[in-house]
Amino acid sequence: MSATLHVKKPGWITRRLFNPAIAFLTRRGLSIWGSRVLAVRGRKSGEWRTTPVNLLTVDGRQYLVAPRGHVQWTHNMRAAGGGRLLLGKSVQDFTAEEVPDEQKPELLRAYLKRWKAEVGAFFNGVGPDSSEDDLRRIAPDHPVFRVTVTGV
């Protein structure tokens, strides 16, 4: 079964109210629980595409997790190999390396501990207290990228 079958599209409230509000605040320098605006070049157009994301830090390393699955920004990230994280006027260029499924459970658990109230519905009942087996089961459905900042 293709992982793209598991994509959860954001609802109207998320698309029209929540994401624009978080992006608005983040663009003005106010991070909401680690929020950033991700800018990544489109794999077909080459134009910058933006979306609000939650930047996860675990053991001093930074990660981007795709709660809704294999969506446009994840496809673009694979093609571009990196992008920019925006917070107000601060711009951080970065490279991105996709994390293998077997390394994701710890990262998914940490992500859900921090943002379950916001994104828990996209994880099919799996939460921060779920078993390692459950986290391994959903790992292929949620791309995770290790972010390495290359410029400020």
Rank of each mutant, 00 (worst) to 15 (best):
P67A: 12
R61D: 05
R78V: 13
T95R: 14
P52D: 06
L30S: 05
G60N: 10
R114F: 02
I13V: 13
T26H: 10
W48N: 04
R109G: 02
E106H: 00
L55M: 03
R41H: 12
A121D: 15
G42P: 03
V58S: 02
V53C: 04
T51M: 11
R27W: 13
G46R: 07
T26V: 12
A21F: 14
T50E: 15
I13D: 05
I32G: 04
R27Y: 14
G29D: 09
E98G: 00
I13H: 11
S130I: 03
W48K: 11
R68G: 08
Q62G: 08
A117W: 09
D101I: 02
Y111S: 04
P128E: 12
H70Y: 13
A96E: 04
H75E: 15
V37P: 03
Y111H: 06
V65G: 02
V91K: 11
L17P: 00
L25G: 15
F94W: 05
D133W: 06
F94Q: 06
A23F: 05
K89E: 13
P52H: 07
R36M: 12
R68W: 11
E97M: 08
Q72H: 15
V71L: 06
L86M: 12
E97V: 09
A79G: 03
A110N: 00
G69Y: 11
E47P: 02
L56M: 11
L38F: 05
K116G: 00
W12I: 10
T57I: 10
K116W: 10
H75S: 13
P10D: 12
V37K: 07
S45K: 10
V99N: 01
G46T: 03
R36V: 05
G82C: 05
I32P: 07
G81F: 08
L30W: 15
P67F: 03
Q103D: 15
V65M: 05
Q62A: 09
A21T: 15
S90E: 13
Q92Y: 09
A80S: 06
G29H: 14
G42W: 09
R43F: 09
R114A: 12
A121W: 15
L55Q: 08
L30C: 09
A39T: 11
A21Y: 06
R68C: 10
R28A: 14
L64P: 01
W48H: 02
D134K: 15
D134C: 07
S45Y: 09
E98S: 05
G120E: 05
N124I: 06
Y63C: 01
P105S: 04
G69N: 07
R109D: 03
S35W: 07
Q92K: 11
A121M: 14
G125C: 10
A39L: 13
A79F: 00
G120F: 03
D93L: 09
V40D: 02
P20T: 09
V65K: 05
L56T: 07
A80Y: 03
Q72G: 13
R114T: 00
N19K: 03
V99F: 03
V37L: 06
R36A: 01
Y111I: 01
R15K: 13
A23S: 14
P10Q: 13
S90T: 12
E98V: 01
G60E: 10
S90K: 10
D101L: 04
V58Q: 02
P105W: 00
E47S: 09
